[in-house]
Design a protein around this nucleic acid. Sequence first.
DNA 1: GTGGTTGTTGCACGAGCGTATAACAACGTG
DNA 2: CACGTTGTTATACGCTCGTGCAACAACCAC
Lengths: 191, 191
Amino acid sequence: MSKRAAPEARRAELIDATARVLATRGAAGASVRIIAAAAGVSPGLVTHHFGGVERLVEATYDHVAARVGEALEAAVAAAGESPRARLAAYLDASFAAPIADPALLATWIAFWSLAQGGAAMQASHARHYAGYRARLEGLLGEAGVAADRRRLAAVGLTALVDGLWLELCLSPGAFSAAEARAVVAEYLAGV
Amino acid sequence: MSKRAAPEARRAELIDATARVLATRGAAGASVRIIAAAAGVSPGLVTHHFGGVERLVEATYDHVAARVGEALEAAVAAAGESPRARLAAYLDASFAAPIADPALLATWIAFWSLAQGGAAMQASHARHYAGYRARLEGLLGEAGVAADRRRLAAVGLTALVDGLWLELCLSPGAFSAAEARAVVAEYLAGV
DNA sequence: GTGGTTGTTGCACGAGCGTATAACAACGTG
DNA sequence: CACGTTGTTATACGCTCGTGCAACAACCAC
């Protein structure tokens, strides 16, 4: 039995446990009992704090997406002031820890899989991707890309980075992170 | 009750039913009972013909992947003899029916999700993607791309097409199929 | 200290899951 | 027509699932 905890702290623990379970056991392991066991807590707590598994998974998605966004921003901040370097850092961050992580991909695939029937999850996804593209368009603008070309460039770069990230995590032997960076750099040179 | 059928015909019906179920209900709906009901057949038949749900899903993956490959080859064959046109047709086919289909994406995500714990599924995935890239390298060679640049070009194009296809199916409002083709054409021009 | 609020547990319930098994039915062969 | 083969069904078993509910326990207000 677990000691009594503040609601927010317990919620955070359950969200962390859900992320761990999704990463290790996939969408199939996202059951109340398994998540509660991973958090060292009784199954009833999930219903008590979130009102159902679905809501807990949504909260976990938002949390993981926020962490990814923070990692991207940290990379940009560490890149200095050159607009070109900041743009490159934003893109290359997807091929290094903590983003280029098979466990994160597993979590993401589980989200996609669970989003099939949930309108709330689909909305979260749309928001997250729109945010990524908007940030990218901003960095492209700072780097001197013409306004009327930014949108399509952001679409292409997002797709390229996503596809590379996916394959890099899914079958790490096909190509290296350095090659992924080179591919993105070449695309960037054409823009 | 269903009439007696030849084993191969019944297997094909079950595979079709599985694909339909994965497309409409996601990985969560891939249960013996639901699939059997979709095929108008008793649940026991899945065990009888495939020895378990896992094996049936693997067979469905191979079948769907083969159909995708056929669609790509058909597009290449319809493009005439110009190597450039054949290459473009191979890439653009991902943004038109029957490949740019949310139902197919749903099926694919279900496969990824179910591949989490199955070595056989992961092997099938690796084989499928290696085949896609190999075919692409061949078309790049015919179009006159230098041998030492083909591999990385194929990696980038595969990732770009995959990312665009994913977002096109996942949130169709973000950009159009024509824009996806334009992005690919621009990347191709740089190679 | 006493009482009320609330985080936490354990259990029960109905439902769906995969699979094994025995009975049934259709077909080919003699 | 009889018979063996085999596709097909129906049922049963043990399991996990999500959730509702009553009881317990920790903390806060007074």
